[in-house]
Computed example of a mutant assay.
Amino acid sequence: MASTALVVGHSKTAGLRRLGPWFNERGLDYEVRFGGDGLPDSLDGYAALIVLGGAPLPYEDDRFPWLPATRALTRQALDRHIPMLGICLGGQLLAYVGGGTVEHRKLKPEHGITPITLDAAAADDPLFSVLPQRFPMAENHVDHITALPSDAVLLAHSDRSPVQGFRLGDCAWGLQFHPEVSADNFTAWDQDDIQDVEHDGFDWNELLERNAGYDAENTRVSARFATRFADLVTER
């Protein structure tokens, strides 16, 4: 019987994208729930929690009224040592629940493929140890984790973001980058999204060209990362 992860999305179209098939290959199934449709009160029956990205800060409950429920599930995952993966907003939410700080436009924004560098602690981390010392990942954020919880372990950073990856407890990981996003995903962005990126000082055509140039490497690394997370869940 396959293990099942609860996936919390912040829009009706949110999903795991390419992570889904990679998880399935390793015996990890998943159930995507849009927070606006209601979330379970408990992680009973789930082998993992995955929280996807979204627009608000992790405490802007007026914008996304299901954030309190998402934070409660995050706390439950920490307390019960249930594996968790938080991506972008999900990672910021994990940091916030643990006592860290997340701020809006405190640092420079990141969009498109960005070089990520591992920190020393990644060598001994169950998940991040499968990654190369430097690797390309998709970014799309203007909010940053500016202070980690005191008991968190920093695992990765970029030139603009001091926190690109961290672990809280023994099996909860927060990411600022997007392993689920491929180069092709960016080509489907609408004009409003493109204008937002260009407003932040990025040339859209150059961004697409850079994404395409790193796509093969990015896909290999993302697949390795995804299958390792799935293995950590299913082998428990």
Rank of each mutant, 00 (worst) to 15 (best):
Met84Tyr: 00
Met84Phe: 02
Met84Gln: 03
Gly86Ala: 09
Gly86Leu: 07
Gly86Asp: 02
Ile87His: 02
Ile87Thr: 11
Cys88Val: 14
Cys88Met: 11
Cys88Trp: 05
Cys88Phe: 05
Leu89Tyr: 03
Leu89His: 03
Leu89Lys: 02
Gly91Lys: 06
Gln92Asn: 09
Gln92Ile: 15
Leu93Asn: 01
Leu93Met: 14
Leu94Cys: 08
Ala95Lys: 04
Tyr96Asn: 12
Val97Glu: 06
Val97Leu: 09
Val97Thr: 07
Gly98Tyr: 02
Gly98Met: 06
Gly99Met: 10
Gly99Gln: 14
Gly99Lys: 11
Gly99His: 12
Gly100Tyr: 01
Thr101Asn: 08
Thr101Lys: 03
Val102Met: 04
Glu103Arg: 15
Arg105Trp: 03
Lys106Glu: 09
Lys106Met: 09
Lys106Phe: 07
Lys106Ser: 07
Lys106Tyr: 04
Leu107Lys: 00
Leu107Pro: 00
Lys108Tyr: 14
Glu110Trp: 10
Glu110Phe: 13
His111Met: 11
His111Cys: 11
His111Ala: 14
Gly112Trp: 00
Gly112Phe: 02
Thr114Lys: 00
Thr114His: 02
Thr114Ser: 08
Ile116Pro: 00
Ile116Trp: 00
Ile116Phe: 00
Thr117Glu: 15
Thr117Pro: 07
Thr117Lys: 09
Leu118Glu: 05
Leu118Gln: 06
Asp119Cys: 12
Ala120Arg: 14
Ala121Tyr: 04
Ala122Ile: 12
Ala122Arg: 03
Ala123Arg: 09
Ala123Asn: 07
Asp124Trp: 00
Asp125Leu: 13
Asp125Ala: 12
Asp125Pro: 11
Pro126Ser: 13
Pro126Thr: 13
Leu127Phe: 07
Leu127Pro: 01
Leu127Glu: 05
Leu127Trp: 03
Leu127Ile: 13
Leu127Arg: 02
Phe128Ala: 09
Val130Pro: 01
Val130Met: 05
Leu131Asn: 06
Leu131Pro: 04
Pro132Tyr: 11
Gln133Cys: 04
Gln133Thr: 12
Gln133Ile: 10
Gln133Val: 12
Arg134Asp: 14
Arg134Ser: 15
Arg134Phe: 12
Phe135Gln: 06
Phe135Pro: 00
Phe135Leu: 11
Phe135Trp: 09
Pro136Ile: 10
Pro136Gln: 08
Pro136Val: 10
Met137Trp: 00
Met137Pro: 00
Ala138Thr: 07
Glu139Lys: 05
Asn140Val: 13
Asn140Trp: 06
Asp143Gln: 06
Asp143Glu: 07
His144Met: 14
His144Val: 15
Ile145Met: 02
Ile145Asp: 00
Thr146Gly: 06
Thr146Met: 06
Ala147Thr: 12
Leu148Arg: 03
Pro149Arg: 15
Pro149Leu: 12
Pro149Asn: 09
Pro149Gly: 10
Pro149Cys: 13
Ser150Leu: 08
Ala152Arg: 04
Ala152Pro: 02
Ala152Gly: 06
Ala152Tyr: 04
Val153Arg: 02
Leu154His: 01
Leu154Lys: 05
Leu154Thr: 05
